[in-house]
Amino acid sequence: MEILLSDLLEQYGYDFTGYSRASLKRRISRLYGLDKALSFAEFRYRINNDHGYFKRFVEQITVNVTEMFRDPSFFKTLRDVVLPKLGTYPFIRIWLAGCSTGEEAYSISIILKELNLLHKSLIYATDLNPTVLEKAAQSMFAMSQMKQYSENYILSGGTKDFSSYYTANYSLAKFDDELKSKIIFSTHNLVSDHSFNEFQLILCRNVLIYFDRDLQHKVLSLFDESLEELGYLALGTKETINFSQITDRYKRLQTEKIWRKVEV
């Protein structure tokens, strides 16, 4: 596996060496079995020489599972505390790092719209994997998920009829274009790319769990650099900034994994 990782770095500039090994290894073995590779040598050759296959490799070893309004209480805090606070600003810039297929981005967009803030907001939704971003930009999700998402939405404090946000098209739900109008989907690799703006809210949920501590330190510094004074940083339910050097400048909000950058 270490051979593959150094190939990817040399050949394509993708650095996975700071990723947690157990998960990576499971993903790689899974793909190896799925694609019925004849031998490790053949598998390696394909990744290095077939660009299409390399794309598939990256898609398959990163975990893209996501949901709308996942962890409803988190979205409730965004709705009740964080976004109203940011609503007092003339313009709201949000960075959603590791947005995967976009379910989170549309969830935030829905809340902004209901708070009447969407017109003055911009959501930069980024991911290292271009394929998930293409999917995200289509604003279509499986109809079969809508019952669950609608329940999550209600639990997160939503009061509208969730189905008013999409039109059903056979097995797909197509979300209103208005929701997408303030989202910019773009590739950004947290390992190698730099800060590209200043934000009032940065969300990066369930991405850091795949990184080792060193890489987590580095990425948290990147977020710190990209966050305005009094801005908010939101992580996944099981992630924390407690171990990192930025923690002194941040104050945790209630029980959610949301921290506010305070003046020192």
Binding site: S20, R21, V63, I209
Partner: peptide, 11 residues
């Protein structure tokens, strides 16, 4: 993990 730590995965 090999270094005797836990990791989590949302796959």
């Amino acid at each position: 993990e090999r270094d005797n730590t836990f990791s989590l995965d949302y796959s």
